[in-house]
Design a protein around this nucleic acid. Sequence first.
DNA 1: CTGAAAGCGCTAACAC
DNA 2: GTGTTAGCGCTTTCAG
Lengths: 343, 343
Amino acid sequence: MALTIKDIASMAGVSKGTVSRVINNNPEGVSEETREKILKLIDEVGYVPNKMARSITVAETKTIGLIIPDVQNPFFPQVIRGVEDCAMENGYTVFLCNSDSDIKKEQKYLYTFLEKRVDGIIINTSGDLNDKKLTALIHKSNIPIVILDRKIKELSRYPGVYVDNARAAREGVSYLIENGASNIAYIAGVKDVYTVEERLKGYCMALEDAGIIINKQYLSYGGYNIQSGYERTREMLSHNPEIDGIFAGCDTIAIGVLKALRELNKKVPDHIQLLGFDNITMSGEMVPPITTVSQPMYEMGYQAARMLLASIQDKTIHQADQYLETDLMIRESTRKKQVREEI
Amino acid sequence: MALTIKDIASMAGVSKGTVSRVINNNPEGVSEETREKILKLIDEVGYVPNKMARSITVAETKTIGLIIPDVQNPFFPQVIRGVEDCAMENGYTVFLCNSDSDIKKEQKYLYTFLEKRVDGIIINTSGDLNDKKLTALIHKSNIPIVILDRKIKELSRYPGVYVDNARAAREGVSYLIENGASNIAYIAGVKDVYTVEERLKGYCMALEDAGIIINKQYLSYGGYNIQSGYERTREMLSHNPEIDGIFAGCDTIAIGVLKALRELNKKVPDHIQLLGFDNITMSGEMVPPITTVSQPMYEMGYQAARMLLASIQDKTIHQADQYLETDLMIRESTRKKQVREEI
DNA sequence: CTGAAAGCGCTAACAC
DNA sequence: GTGTTAGCGCTTTCAG
C-alpha cells in the first residue's frame, strides 16, 4: 500500500499532527528544523498526501463539476477552456460531463457531483430539470451553482453568465436589413431552447424595427449541425426562392447553409446575405468568411468559474447574473455598408 | 451540515452497518422489510451518501484523469468524448486538464491526480516528462496509465493507443505522387513531437518509394494552427514556386495552407494538391473539401478508456499497445486518380 | 513547538 | 438479519 501520514510520522520520529502541519504548509507550530527534516523525508520516500482523506474532514474537495451538452459542438471547447483555466489557477480540478442535453444524463451527473461532494457546479443545459426530488436535493445541499448561457427554470434561483441573445440577434439582423435584405429566413437551432428563442425575439424585433412583416414560412428549427443547416436551407429555398438573407442560429448551421447555397448557385452575399452566431474559429475561414455575432465564449467560461469560486468562498452572498458583450463581426457574407454612405 | 449515514441509522432505528448495506445495494444481510424502510427514509429526508468517505476506505474513487494539450485544438473534442463515454458507461467520472504541452503543467496535473487518488490516468503530451522524482512517484504509486496518440519516453512501460502515423503519411503522400505531384512540401507541426516525426518518416518513405530525392527545403515546422499553416505556406512558396503538392501536418494547418493558396491564386488541386491529416469535421467543408488521412479520434479515446478500465480492474495484466486503423479520405483537394486508369 | 486523542463519514469483519 | 467495533488517512483541538 501507499505510504500514509502515519508512516512518515513514525519514520521521522514525530507525531501525525506535526507531519500534517508541514504538508499543509501551516506556517506555525513547527520548527524550521523539523519541517525541513520531514520535507526531506517525504521527498526521499515518495509520499503523496491523500487529498480524499483530507477532503472528508475539511469538507472541501477542490473540485468543480461542469456539465455541457457535447464537447464536440464547436461552441464548447472555448468555454470549457475558460472554466478550466480559472479553476486551475485557483487550485481546482474540473469534472467534465457531456449530457447530450439529455435530462436523464444531466440528472445522473448532477447526483454524482453531489455524491462526490464537488465544491460547486457549472451547468449548461437545454430543456429543464423536471426531477423535483433532484432539485430539492440540490437546494438542500446548499451547493453553489452557476448557470452558463442558457437559463434553467428549475434552477432560476442560481446566478448565471449570459449574453443578450435577443439584442445581439436584433443587431445582426438589422445589419442584414440595412444592407438591403428584406426576405430574411431564420434557420434556427433546437426549438424551445432558451438561446434559440431569445434570438428569435431579436430577429422579430429587427424586422419590426424596419417595418417588415414577419413571415412564419421563414422560420425553420433544426439541430446544431452542418447537416441540419444544409437541409433546411435547401428546403427553405425550394419553397421561398425570394429569400435574400439568412440568419443562421449558430455558425455550425451557417456552414451548412453556405454549403447549400454553393450547390444552389446562390452567390453570397450578392444573391443572399448570410449571418451566423458565435464566431467559432472556422466561421472566418470559410469562403466567403461568414459575418457573425461574436460571443465571448472563453470569457463566458472563465467568468462562470470566477463567479462559482466566489460563491464557494462565501456562500452567503448571492451573485448577480452577468451579461457579457457580443460583437458583430462583419466579414464577407454580408454586403458592404458603403451603399448607404454613398447617398 | 449534510445528513450522514449515522443520522439515517438513528432515524431508522438501525445501525450504520445496516444502512451501509442498503446504500451499497449489498444483496445480503438486510431483510426486504428494513431495506425498503431505509430506502424510503433516505428518499424522504434527502440523504446523499458521501462517496469521498467511501473512497478512502475502499481505496477507489471511480474517477480517472485525462490530460491533453488543449480542448480548443479540433483534434481533441472527439477523443475526449470517446474517453468520457466509455468512462461514464462504467460509472467513472473524468477530470479534464489542459496542459498546453507545458511540462510544468503536465507535472502539476499528474501530481494532483496522484493526490486525489484517481483510479487511472490517460495522457497525451508532446515532449517528455523530465522530472525523475515525479515519474518515480508515478511508478511507485502503481497507478494504471494509458498513453494516447503520442509516445512518451519516460512512460514507455505503459500501454497506449496509437495510429501508425508513418504508414498513414506514406500512403497519403504516395497518393499525391500517383496523381502527379513530385515537388511535395511537408508543412509540419511542432518539431520533435512524436507524431510529427513519424509522419515525416512516412513522407520520406513515400518519396523514396517513388525515387524522388528528398529536398530539405520542402520541410517546414510550425504550430498546430491555421495561422502557422498560412504563414509557412506563403514563405515556402516564395522560395520554392515549383511546389505542386503539400502535405499538411494536420487539418488545421491544411486550412491555413488553403487560405494562403487562395490568396496566391494557386488552384487546388490543379496547381497544387493538398493533403491533410486527422479528418476533423471542417476539413470536408472547405472549398475545395480537403483530402486527408482520417484518424479514428473518438475511437482512440474510447479504446484508451477501455484499456485503462481493464488495467484498473486487473492491475496484474499488462495491456499491449493498440494500433487503430487510419483511412485515406479522398476529396477534392487532390486530383482524381483516373489519370492512371485511362492508360 | 509538539504529541495525544477524538472525530470526519463510511466500510468491513465479526459477533450474536 | 443486524449491531458492534475497529479502522481508512487525515485534521484539529487541547494539553503540556
